[in-house]
Design a protein around this nucleic acid. Sequence first.
DNA 1: ATGAAAGCGCTAACAG
DNA 2: CTGTTAGCGCTTTCAT
Lengths: 341, 341
Amino acid sequence: MNIKEIAKIAGVSVATVSRVLNHPDSVAPETKERILNVIKESDYTPNWFARGLNFNRTNTIGLLIPNILNPSYMEIAKGVEDVAHQKDYTTFLCNAENAVEKERRYVESLMRRKVDGIVLVSSLLESEDVDAVMKQGVPVVLIGENRNISGIPIVRIDCHGAAAKAVRHLIDIGYRDIAIIYGTTPERENMRKIEGYKQVLTEEGIPLRNDYVMEVANTVEGGYIAARRLIGMVKRPRAIFTSSDLLAFGVIDAMRDYSIRVPEEVAIVGFDNIRMSNLIEPKLTTIEKPMHKMGLVGARLLFDIMDSKEEEDTSSREILLQSKLKIRKSCGHRDRIGEIF
Amino acid sequence: MNIKEIAKIAGVSVATVSRVLNHPDSVAPETKERILNVIKESDYTPNWFARGLNFNRTNTIGLLIPNILNPSYMEIAKGVEDVAHQKDYTTFLCNAENAVEKERRYVESLMRRKVDGIVLVSSLLESEDVDAVMKQGVPVVLIGENRNISGIPIVRIDCHGAAAKAVRHLIDIGYRDIAIIYGTTPERENMRKIEGYKQVLTEEGIPLRNDYVMEVANTVEGGYIAARRLIGMVKRPRAIFTSSDLLAFGVIDAMRDYSIRVPEEVAIVGFDNIRMSNLIEPKLTTIEKPMHKMGLVGARLLFDIMDSKEEEDTSSREILLQSKLKIRKSCGHRDRIGEIF
DNA sequence: ATGAAAGCGCTAACAG
DNA sequence: CTGTTAGCGCTTTCAT
């Protein structure tokens, strides 16, 4: 069923049918209604391709996620999708699997499919990759940093501040031997967490120890492995701050295996506040990241840019979101369970 | 940059350029190379719409997931995507959010975008919805049942058998007062689990109690609420089988809040074997569903159908996957920790 | 207010 | 092996 048939049945020209679809006001109410009826009766839908050939836009945006099995990322995705859906846009969700090549392939694929904009989450791409896309007139926004892509609109979390908040809390409740375990990804964010950690220790006059700073894969297993190394040390840390809850789970698991009580013998603070952090025993003290909000804000930023005139310079737009410290049991201070903002 | 310009630069006709893109062998090696060079130099990409207008296919499939925040579903998604990616297909992942209307809207949207096939995960759609799609020549496969959509190719899990396996294990290790908590979704699967549960009890001559069968929302909170009801009963069950791990987590959480020891005072068996079931204390005995495999198998089935001739009747194809019982601590039998196949 | 006709960029017969 | 040409289904001037 195509526009020609509709035109024939309604006894008008294709142009008129096209008009009722695109500029309804420019057609006589009477004929319009007749055509609309025919369209409904024969449940006709305009051909997507023919339409695109003329308009060159698709009401579709691309969304690149590092790992779809990670619910935190999917919360961002949901935020993006919520906004897109509301604007009658469809979202292409792509699973980059933490691989630049895969990410690049997906971006190509998205460009071929003529998406109207792209949201990158913790992207591993280089600035040039992004430039190539934007040069084609497709706006890109970044949610969450990973590497140093500069000159592109971004919404990110104040990781430095959040880490500082966490470490300062540990110091406040009496710990001084504090280790940090961080994942290899997301690179840039984790660097900021380390900076925050180091800054607070330095401010407090606590000497930094290199062996208290460990990098591992950002997985439960990674946390387990790092914890085991920490456990084996002569001077074992009394508190451990991890760059993600997954790592913290691995640490807790290791502690259980080695019969070291949490938080009595070692305090643990995570990062992310994923669902399970509140279900594990002991409940995990952690940083709550506003993932869904990041998605919302990121998507809105993208649509802003898509709607704005070409001339405006949007490259420097940056939105910084704050996160809260959720104090629960794993960091070991009975008197201050609650939330700090 | 379009095909015409390429043709001009290369000094050939558009047809020849088109040919090197679609039937490379039908072009003289020499001209082919020349054209290929021009294409590369000017990084030209064939226009998606023009192409689609002729072919009427997109190398794109649609994938409808009930909830993208649920990692189990995302494992299926990954399986589907793995196959699609390998076949050079792109996947449109849609988050139906357990809502029929939303699902319907997405299917429409996918059809408009001319996807070549659709994978439905635990769909809430009616048979008519699916028929409408298939009538348009777009094949559909279902992964995991939810309602009774019949006459459509499906890959599903033997939930009846799996539940029976779990309950029989509980009986084997000495329990007789066994409750079942099941989520409202996925409807059909959970019905089968109840059947399996009832069948085994009946076979063992254990009288069924209606108040031992509880339906709640399929969430941690749902499990918590149901558990609290169970705790308040005069004759409290000694073992609880839940239709999902999330529910089991809620149950464990409730037991902790009410100081009831698991598994000493109450045994718990979950369903799904999600990541966290192995990290929670006590580690959860559960049914391991081969999610990723379901995705792989489902996608392969879809591609099979897409590749097959129209005439073949594929409507009755059904693939039944078995799942394992993972015996861990929460069901309380020290002597038999391990795996049963 | 409506119709005729010229594309949008590409593919596939059909000739040569 | 290559060029010419007629569409694919739709939108949009340009007439009327």
